[in-house]
Amino acid sequence: MQRVNMIMAESPGLITICLLGYLLSAECTVFLDHENANKILNRPKRYNSGKLEEFVQGNLERECMEEKCSFEEAREVFENTERTTEFWKQYVDGDQCESNPCLNGGSCKDDINSYECWCPFGFEGKNCELDVTCNIKNGRCEQFCKNSADNKVVCSCTEGYRLAENQKSCEPAVPFPCGRVSVSQTSKLTRAETVFPDVDYVNSTEAETILDNITQSTQSFNDFTRVVGGEDAKPGQFPWQVVLNGKVDAFCGGSIVNEKWIVTAAHCVETGVKITVVAGEHNIEETEHTEQKRNVIRIIPHHNYNAAINKYNHDIALLELDEPLVLNSYVTPICIADKEYTNIFLKFGSGYVSGWGRVFHKGRSALVLQYLRVPLVDRATCLRSTKFTIYNNMFCAGFHEGGRDSCQGDSGGPHVTEVEGTSFLTGIISWGEECAMKGKYGIYTKVSRYVNWIKEKTKLT
């Protein structure tokens, strides 16, 4: 034993070699072989497995989906700052455009905790909710729209109204504003409101030439003092309507412009014939205590009207009353817009006519005020429907199939267009061939041609 100890002390290297040989010859039971080890760690190889990531292109799944990435790591994937920024906006807080917040056709661009709407022409605001041009839906104005110097929408209202708090709607500024039905039992019968379409306001006024200088022999019209197929109006439903009495009662109609003036057809009036105007009328054979009678003290036909040349060209006249009318729910003026808007309103496509005229061709006159909704007829169809001249200051309205029309005794009465609950004068009943005849239409004086003249002559002093 002493000898062994001496050998170990003198030859430590020998001992180490012996131990190493023993270990190498022993069977290893701690580690699995290569094949079995792979069965336990069965993990798919990654895209760049075996390579240094710093030297390969980034992978979106590896960089940002398996674990949260930084902007720089995302930049490695896209290799483009702009594309990385677009991805980053949604990656950080989701897609803010998912709810489609942009209105009126706006395009949404996502941002971090926010979004941006790219608005089409005519709109602005956070969600493109603000109209900035009158060309689109009248700028959301209830009545009139004008573009300011910086191309912003400025709404306005006709006389007797003021802008509401929203700067879009119009509200009454006087007790009985024009064009409004205020009798409670008839307010439910107000005709369907007309909503502004998209309009090209630059070209809204037709490029028409008034044929002022045409000389033409007097034409022989049949029954051209021209509501057939209409309905009984309720008291106060058309408070701007008046009836004219002269040699015979209810020979023509008219509309209240203001307390002192009536507008009617020029062919209705004769110099030297006494005319009485009755406002607030409903049943011409009954006294309903809503009527107001006034005498006409002055007749002003349009300066281009000449019955000797043509009885229905420039067929418009103004009547001055001896005493002002007292405005109330049964006696209310009709609204008159400017030339541009009167023309736009007419193009809405349908209007209402009213009167006490004959209820059928050569038949009896109506006792109760009649009204009828009539569609506008395109000019080409209008011209083809008659052998008589249709001037540019006239328009056609009615039904091709016949059966409904204005008729004798309705002449001078109103053709009105309702705009968001307020009625505007767009025409004056003038003439036609018979009444409600198939293929024939009622012919009306186009008020847009005469609004400046009306307003100039009827100013209240």
Rank of each mutant, 00 (worst) to 15 (best):
M6R: 13
I7K: 15
M8W: 12
A9W: 15
A9C: 13
S11E: 04
L14A: 06
I15M: 08
T16A: 14
I17F: 08
C18N: 02
L19W: 06
L19P: 02
G21C: 08
G21S: 11
Y22R: 02
L23M: 11
L24P: 02
S25H: 04
S25C: 15
S25R: 05
A26M: 05
E27Y: 05
C28T: 08
T29E: 12
V30P: 13
D33S: 11
H34S: 07
H34G: 08
H34F: 07
N36M: 10
A37T: 15
K39Q: 09
I40A: 15
L41F: 11
N42S: 13
K45I: 11
Y47T: 15
S49G: 14
G50V: 08
G50D: 15
L52P: 15
G58K: 15
N59E: 08
N59K: 10
L60E: 11
E61L: 07
R62Q: 15
M65S: 05
E66F: 05
E67L: 08
E72K: 12
R75A: 08
R75C: 04
E76T: 12
F78L: 14
E79M: 14
E82A: 14
T84R: 08
T85Y: 06
T85V: 07
T85M: 08
V92L: 11
V92Y: 05
D93N: 15
Q96R: 15
E98D: 08
E98A: 11
P101Q: 05
P101S: 05
C102A: 00
N104T: 02
G106I: 02
G106L: 02
S107V: 08
S107R: 13
C108G: 01
K109L: 09
I112C: 04
N113R: 12
S114P: 04
Y115M: 03
Y115A: 03
Y115T: 04
Y115W: 08
Y115C: 03
E116L: 15
W118C: 14
C119W: 00
C119D: 02
C119P: 02
C119T: 02
P120E: 06
G122N: 10
K126P: 15
C128Q: 02
E129K: 04
D131N: 15
D131F: 12
D131Q: 08
T133W: 08
C134R: 03
N135Y: 05
I136Y: 12
K137I: 05
K137E: 10
R140S: 05
C141I: 00
C141W: 00
Q143M: 07
Q143P: 00
F144N: 00
C145F: 01
C145E: 02
K146I: 13
S148Y: 07
S148C: 07
S148M: 10
D150P: 09
N151G: 12
N151K: 13
K152S: 12
V153N: 11
V153H: 15
V154A: 13
C155T: 00
C155D: 01
C157N: 00
E159M: 07
L163Y: 00
A164R: 08
E165N: 09
Q167W: 07
Q167N: 07
C170T: 00
E171S: 07
E171R: 08
P172I: 05
A173F: 09
P175M: 10
P175Y: 05
F176R: 05
G179C: 01
R180S: 04
V181A: 11
S182N: 10
S182P: 06
V183R: 09
S184V: 12
S184D: 13
S187T: 13
S187Y: 09
K188N: 10
R191W: 08
R191P: 13
E193I: 13
P197V: 10
D198P: 11
V199W: 11
V199D: 11
D200R: 11
N203P: 07
S204L: 12
E208W: 08
T209L: 11
T209M: 12
I210V: 11
L211R: 06
L211Y: 10
L211D: 11
D212R: 10
N213A: 07
I214L: 08
I214V: 12
T215E: 06
T215N: 08
S217Q: 12
S217T: 11
Q219V: 09
F221T: 08
N222D: 09
N222T: 07
N222H: 05
N222K: 09
D223W: 08
F224H: 10
G229P: 08
G229D: 12
E231K: 09
D232L: 08
A233R: 05
K234E: 13
K234F: 12
P235T: 06
G236I: 05
G236T: 05
Q237G: 09
Q237E: 05
Q241E: 03
Q241S: 05
Q241L: 12
V242D: 02
V243Y: 14
N245F: 02
K247F: 05
A250T: 07
G253T: 09
G254D: 00
S255D: 00
I256K: 00
I256R: 02
N258Y: 01
K260V: 03
K260T: 01
W261R: 00
W261A: 02
I262V: 13
T264S: 05
A266M: 03
A266S: 03
H267Q: 04
V269G: 03
E270L: 05
E270R: 04
T271G: 03
G272S: 02
K274C: 01
G280C: 01
E281D: 13
H282Q: 10
I284N: 07
E286F: 09
T287V: 13
E288M: 05
H289P: 12
K293N: 07
K293T: 13
K293V: 13
N295K: 02
V296A: 04
I297D: 02
I300L: 08
I300F: 05
P301H: 08
P301D: 03
P301S: 08
H303P: 10
Y305H: 05
A307R: 12
A308Y: 12
I309E: 11
N310W: 04
K311E: 06
K311A: 09
N313V: 09
H314I: 02
H314V: 03
E320Q: 06
L321K: 00
D322W: 01
D322R: 00
E323L: 09
L325Y: 03
V326A: 12
V326M: 13
V326N: 08
N328P: 02
S329W: 05
S329Q: 08
V331C: 05
T332V: 14
T332N: 04
I334G: 00
I334C: 02
I336S: 00
D338R: 05
K339L: 06
E340R: 14
T342I: 02
N343D: 15
I344M: 09
I344E: 10
F345G: 01
F348T: 14
F348A: 11
G351S: 06
Y352C: 06
Y352V: 06
G355V: 11
W356E: 02
G357F: 11
R358K: 14
R358Q: 12
F360Y: 14
H361W: 06
K362E: 10
R364M: 13
S365F: 06
S365G: 06
A366I: 11
L367C: 07
L369N: 08
Y371H: 13
Y371N: 10
R373S: 11
R373M: 07
D378P: 13
D378L: 04
D378R: 07
A380T: 10
T381R: 12
T381I: 14
T381D: 14
T381M: 11
R384Y: 07
K387S: 07
T389E: 12
T389P: 12
I390G: 07
Y391S: 12
M394G: 04
M394A: 09
F395I: 01
F395P: 01
F395C: 02
C396E: 00
C396P: 02
A397Q: 02
G403W: 14
D405F: 14
C407M: 07
D410K: 11
D410I: 10
S411I: 09
P414A: 09
V416D: 00
T417F: 02
V419C: 04
E420Y: 12
T422P: 01
F424S: 01
I428W: 05
I429E: 12
W431K: 08
G432F: 04
G432V: 07
E433A: 13
E434L: 14
C435Y: 03
A436E: 14
A436H: 13
A436G: 10
M437S: 08
K438S: 13
Y441N: 03
Y441E: 00
Y441R: 03
G442S: 08
Y444M: 05
Y444L: 06
S448D: 14
R449A: 14
N452G: 15
N452V: 07
W453D: 01
I454V: 06
I454T: 00
E456N: 12
K457E: 12
K459Q: 13
T461A: 12
